[in-house]
């Protein structure tokens, strides 16, 4: 058994596997399938200062090797989470990451203030493609990323992870902006903006017309971006995008991720998170590594 512990911005995780925000609710549903203490951290569904209704259905469309979603950040609000979910979650030996969303910078700051130090880490969601205001609008402009990161960081009592959007020309500029704004870590990638058309009705499958692409289809893009960001910033990286197996996760670690998140795979297989964690350990044991840290960034680049 290899040492799976990782340290992300000063927070010790028992292993490098967490959940991708929005695929895991607040943990209750999957706690019926496995003990959440098996995860290094749980990253929860996005929280806003006030409840959000989300978009109309259909909100999900199947595509080749993946899905599009247009949930639109439906959530009961940060205070409701504190009152109804937090104490239950604390029974598990895992770190809790709250994903913060909003329509304005002030909204994000307000969520950070409401949550205070009640969770272990924050993830700043400036990359959701499914809302008109906020979300991705903040995450595709380096100046805005630096500004919102520094404003939320100033209001944060716990380490701040900035979640990056892949819907940009140069992801490294966005990562550098997050670093300049005072981010403690970055996570990537959020979903890629996509579209699916039903050729029988000639209408988009999603009511919102467009949505975020996730699943195995996006993984090579995500691995490439993690590799580029690793070379651009010193921050810890949480890599995600299409991970379904331990082997997939190893690719991200080799590319430079310090930890990984599993999301869409869990929508198909409730045990995906556990399988990824075991698969990472199996690879390390098989190849004679003592610690997961030994393979981070160890991709052997050609030339």
């Amino acid at each position: 058994m290899a040492d799976l512990r990782v340290n992300i911005a000063g927070v010790e995780w028992s292993n490098p596997v967490t959940t991708a925000s929005g695929t895991f609710g607040f943990g209750r549903e999957y706690a019926e399938y496995f003990d959440l203490s098996n995860l290094g951290a749980v990253c929860l569904k996005a929280l806003s200062a006030k409840p959000r209704l989300g978009n109309r259905s259909p909100r999900i469309a199947e595509v080749n090797d993946g899905i599009l979603n247009s949930v639109g950040l439906q959530n009961p609000g940060a205070q409701h989470f504190i009152d109804n979910e937090l104490e239950w979650l604390r029974q598990f030996d895992t770190k809790i990451i709250a994903n913060l969303c909003g329509s304005t910078v002030e909204d994000y700051v307000e969520v950070a203030e409401i949550l205070g130090d009640k969770v272990d880490m924050f993830e700043l969601n400036i990359s959701c493609p499914n809302v008109k205001e906020g979300g991705m609008a903040f995450g595709t402009d380096p100046k805005m990323i630096e500004d919102i990161t520094s404003r939320v960081k100033a209001a944060s009592k716990v380490p701040l992870i900035v979640k990056l959007s892949p819907n940009v020309t140069d992801i490294t500029e966005m990562a550098k902006a997050a670093e300049a704004g005072g981010a403690d870590a970055v996570s990537l990638i959020n979903t890629l903006l996509g579209m699916k058309i039903d050729i029988k009705t000639r209408k988009p499958v999603l009511y919102n017309n467009m949505g975020g692409l996730s699943g195995p289809a996006v993984m090579p893009v995500a691995v490439r971006m993690v590799y580029q960001v690793r070379r651009a910033v010193k921050l810890p990286i949480i890599g995600m995008g299409g991970i379904a197996t331990g082997e997939d996760a190893i690719e991200f670690l080799l590319a430079g991720a310090d930890a990984v998140a599993v999301g869409t795979a869990g929508i198909v297989d409730p045990y995906a998170w556990i399988k990824v964690r075991s698969g990472i350990n199996d690879y390390l044991d098989r190849n004679g590594y003592n610690s997961v840290k030994d393979i981070v960034g160890k991709v052997d680049i050609n030339g």
């Binding site: 609710g25 209704l53 259909p58």
Partner: peptide, 28 residues
């Protein structure tokens, strides 16, 4: 009935709208 993801209530994609304006999960 609605287009569904996880089926267990976590991904919150298969919602239907209620008369009080809220959106609830068809699966859960």
């Amino acid at each position: 009935e609605e287009r569904m993801g996880c089926g267990v209530g976590a991904c919150v994609t298969c919602t239907c709208t209620m008369t009080d304006g809220s959106r609830r999960r068809v699966c859960k």
